[in-house]
Design a protein around this nucleic acid. Structure first.
Length: 303
DNA sequence: CACCCGTGGCG
DNA sequence: TCGCCAAGGGT
């Protein structure tokens, strides 16, 4: 069996309902697409749209970002979340500049070797930016296929070999068509076949859906997510926010004011240093990597 | 492979 | 109110 029974309805639905997103426009560069994919990792489209525009406006190509500092990247990243993505994107820009002549590589294998680029992002960029025939398995595609074909409400926590096989089998033979198919499935998952409250009445595949046919059997409860309040994640976020908002390196007392629990604060600071999100100066001050100390007043200009 | 990594919005 | 969710990646 081919994807024929699914492809036509999905393609048609996508043609009518796709959102006009900047990184989907025909003239979107591979760099623009790569940046969008990194930003979209666990961050909603609505928040990525303005951040992506500002990023591309400031750094229109990899070379430009490569010549900036990590501190610049982290400040531009602002509050998108998971700031390690900004550090890795910056490192990727430098690798693209040094090893690929400033051009985003086109093969999934080369893309996969860039920091912050995993199986999903490598396939997405290879497919969407270069028209290569790669199955794109993100959470939306996985959920749609789990419901449509397997008849389960949610995909498994990790991608299985059977899933990859299924995705490969459904992929249209032509690279450009495959990209269209993948983005169509993703969009369907994002707008119709949503994790909560799916809109089956609007789904072009409803009459073929195994999950619907089986009466929407629920998936077993997942482990409850750990609370955020008081977590290391919140602590790290607070500390980094202080450094983002500061003009340059700050003293330990400034960071101390941002988080009461000294033990947790020190532990999180050590982790931030290990992650390359923070650097410690020779004078013991803390700052974003590449941040320069405040300019001393120019002699003669002070009163 | 389970766990960790930010942030904000929504039902 | 608060748990869940949002185009994952690294270890």
């Amino acid at each position: 069996m081919t994807s024929a029974a699914y492809a036509a309805p999905v393609m048609s639905w996508y043609a009518h309902h796709a959102r006009d997103l900047p990184w989907r426009r025909p003239d979107a560069s591979p760099w623009s697409i790569l940046v969008s994919e990194i930003m979209l990792q666990q961050t909603p489209v609505s928040r990525v749209i303005p951040a992506h525009a500002a990023w591309l406006d400031r750094w229109p190509e990899p070379r430009a970002l490569a010549s900036a500092s990590v501190a610049d990247a982290l400040r531009q990243w602002d509050r998108l979340g998971y700031p390690r993505r900004a550090v890795r994107l910056h490192a990727s820009a430098r690798l693209i500049t040094s090893r690929h002549g400033g051009r985003v590589p086109s093969s999934a294998e080369e893309l996969r070797s860039l920091p912050g680029v995993g199986a999903y992002t490598a396939a997405a960029v290879a497919s969407f930016a270069f028209g290569q025939r790669r199955a794109v398995l993100d959470t939306n595609v996985r959920r749609v296929l789990a419901r449509l074909v397997v008849g389960e409400s949610r995909p498994a926590p990790t991608v299985s070999a059977a899933e990859r096989l299924l995705a490969d089998r459904l992929l249209p033979p032509d690279g450009k068509l495959a990209a269209r198919w993948s983005v169509g499935l993703m969009e369907l998952g994002a707008l119709v076949c949503t994790a909560a409250r799916p809109r089956c009445a609007e789904c072009p595949l409803a009459d073929q859906c195994a999950w619907l046919r089986r009466g929407y059997p629920p998936s077993p409860r997942r482990r409850r997510a750990p609370g955020y309040e008081g977590s290391d994640r919140q602590c790290r976020g607070k500390l980094l926010a202080v450094l983002r908002d500061a003009q340059g390196p700050v003293g330990a007392s400034t960071l101390a004011a941002a988080w009461n629990d000294a033990g947790q604060r020190d532990r999180c600071l050590a982790a931030l240093l290990a992650d390359g999100l923070v650097t410690r100066g020779t004078d013991g001050s803390l700052g974003l990597p590449g941040d320069e100390p405040p300019r001393p007043e120019t002699p003669g200009q002070t009163a």
